[in-house]
Each structure stands twice: as structure tokens, then as C-alpha cells.
Amino acid sequence: MSAVLIALFVSLIGCFLIIRFQHLHKHVTGDTDLSGVQKFHTNAVPRIGGLPIFIAIGCALIPRWTNDLNVASFTTLLLISALPCFLAGLLEDLTKKIGAKERLVATMVSAAIAGWYLDAWLTNVQIFGIDWILSIPIISMIFTCFCIAGVANSFNLIDGYHGLSSAVAVIILTALGYVAFQIKDYPIMVCSLAGIGAIVGFLFWNYPRGLIFLGDGGAYLIGFWIAELSLLLVLRNPTVSKWFPLLLCLYPIFETVFTVYRRVVLMRVSPGLPDASHLHQIIYKRVVRWTIGSTEVETLTQRNAITAPYLWLLSSVAVVPAIIFWNNHIALKICAGLFAITYVWLYWSIVRFKTPKWLIIQK
């Protein structure tokens, strides 16, 4: 538990200092673009929440060097591997000049570093035919880097409202930590706990008032952290199904896949073109109808905060069965299919103004 408490304290204080002295740095760190299609805040807010999270995770791992060198070396290598994707995201937060392609490449570099030093290469996915292809080393390496970058980017994609991406990350890390505890994989468990503490310390200031944002640095960091821990858990423990981490992260992953389908196939535009049609955005506009038309900052902030719990619940629909069936790949595949159906049904119901009445919040 020391990893949780240390990370929580450091993140809590780090975020407080950023918020308290934002008048000194907000011209560099603030999210001042209030008019973009994916912007739903009303004031400039520091978007470097990933910095205290990264520092908090590092501080939480320091005591391990005195009592468990195996855990310490593992966790340190993982944190070093995260540096390229975190720094690329942080540079974007500070300069607004690092494109999505550059951030994805940086995340692939992080995945390659972790793969090299921690032997973290995905060689099978429990699908006949594909597993044979992944047995070829170079293909396995490329596929692994692509998957890690995709998951990291998916957490950035859902980072649209106060507490959304970060709380989903806490839910997933809790599941990872639980399964790691069950199978006695303590390095994975410690890394999960450190991530939980660091993100919860950030959440204290981010939800519900949005006093600080994750930024690209924070979103890519927690996405990479979860993706690598998930991969390492199944590689180090053959009893854990390869479909366990997929179902755990299925909400952000499916959101990304569905977004690409929606933009390329339905809208026939570039998949990288931003829009305001993500599931969390249409829930904000059509389900959380409370305060629609209001221009008051306080009521808009409250409406923003009300949106995230819908997606926390949706994510839990995938996480809970993943925990229950973590070693049963057939059950996990069935649950993944059911989640995909649920997501598509929910999306199209809202788009076609057929949202179940019990989901709607209005004044």
C-alpha cells in the first residue's frame, strides 16, 4: 500500500502547486483554445497534469530499491520506457506543435524500449492463423508497437471531460492490480498501485471542477502504462488469457476503432480530423440535457462533470466480466462481442434521438 500512498501524496501536492501558481506559467501550460470542436471548458486551465503523475509514480517506486531489487529494476525500466511518449505529449502541451503522428511514433519508440529490455513482445492473441503470423519475430515486434501506441492514443481520444480518461484508467488499473495480486505477480501489482495513487491525486483536482487537465502527456502516459502492464501480465503469466487486457481496455479501444470507421467509411474524411461526435460528446449534448442553453460557468462545469459517470459505467461493463473471467478466453471473447453490440446500440440510439428515458438528465 505504500506505493499508493506515496504516489497519491506526491501527485496531490504536485497538482496543487501547478494550480496555485498557474498565474506564473499559464501562458505556456494553459489550454487557452476555448473554441475548438472538442473543447468544453470556459476558462484557460493548466494542461500539464501528466507531469505530477509521472513524478508521483517515480517517487512511489523509490522505496523498492531498499527492500525489493527485483520489483525496483522492473518498475524503473518500465518508467524509463515511458519517457519518449510522455515527453512527446508534454511537449505538445507546452508548444502545441507536436502532431498526432509524432506522438504515435514516440509511443512506438517507448513500446520498442519496453519490448527490448522487458522482453515484452506479443507473440499470440489466441486467434487461429494470426498466432502463426505473430510467431515471426519482426512481425511480432511491429504488431506489439502498433498495439501499445493504439491503446495509448485511445486514452488520449477519450480525454474529453473532467475525470473521464483518468477515472477509466483507475478502474482498469484496479482490475490489473487485483489479478496481479491473485497470481502473485508483485511487480505488476506495485506498478498498478503506483498508477492508481498518482491518478487519484490528480483526480482530486480534476473532478468535478476541472482545475487541471491531463494534457497529452498525461493521457499518453497512463495509456502506455496500462497497455504495457496488461501486455507484461499476460506474457509473464500464461494462465491469464490474452483477451483479458483487451476486454479491460475495450471501451477506449472500441471508441478509437469506431471513430476511424465513422470518419473514414461514413463521413469519408481523414481519420485524424477532429470532430464533436465521440460517444462522450453526444452524451454531453443529447443525454445530459440539464442546463442546455445556459452560459453560466458553474452550471456548464457541472454539466461537464455529469457526463463522465456515464462512461465510467460503460467501461465497467467491460471491466467487471474481465475480472470474473480473466483466465477463460472463450468467455472473454463472448463478453467482448456483447460489449461491442452494446456500444453500437447506445451510440445509434442517442444519435437517432431514441435514448432510453432513464438515461436522460434534464432540469
Results as ranks from 00 to 15, higher is better:
243 W>L: 11
85 C>I: 08
290 W>Y: 04
143 F>M: 07
75 T>D: 01
342 T>I: 05
159 D>E: 11
211 L>A: 09
238 P>V: 10
30 G>P: 10
134 L>M: 10
218 G>Y: 02
264 V>A: 12
60 A>L: 03
304 N>Y: 05
11 S>Y: 10
243 W>E: 00
122 L>H: 03
226 I>A: 09
87 L>F: 15
231 L>C: 03
194 A>N: 02
67 N>I: 14
305 A>D: 09
313 L>F: 15
97 K>R: 13
349 S>Y: 03
324 I>S: 10
344 V>N: 06
229 L>R: 06
273 L>Q: 14
153 N>Y: 10
276 A>S: 15
297 V>H: 14
19 I>T: 07
58 G>S: 12
282 I>H: 09
314 L>H: 01
360 I>F: 05
181 F>V: 09
14 G>K: 06
141 M>D: 02
4 V>K: 01
109 V>H: 07
204 F>A: 13
155 F>A: 02
174 T>G: 15
314 L>V: 14
194 A>M: 00
336 A>Y: 04
349 S>G: 13
53 I>L: 14
96 K>S: 11
296 E>Y: 05
101 K>S: 09
2 S>P: 00
35 S>W: 02
262 R>L: 10
288 V>W: 02
28 V>F: 10
141 M>T: 10
357 K>C: 03
101 K>T: 11
85 C>D: 01
236 R>W: 05
92 E>Q: 10
102 E>M: 11
302 Q>E: 10
341 I>Q: 07
362 Q>D: 15
293 G>K: 07
151 V>R: 05
255 E>A: 05
58 G>K: 07
70 N>P: 00
54 F>A: 04
150 G>E: 07
339 F>M: 05
298 E>Q: 12
50 G>F: 00
319 V>R: 05
280 H>Y: 14
115 G>L: 06
241 S>W: 02
334 I>V: 15
229 L>D: 05
295 T>Q: 13
116 W>G: 03
46 P>Q: 02
102 E>K: 10
202 F>W: 10
79 L>C: 09
39 K>R: 14
228 E>C: 13
280 H>D: 08
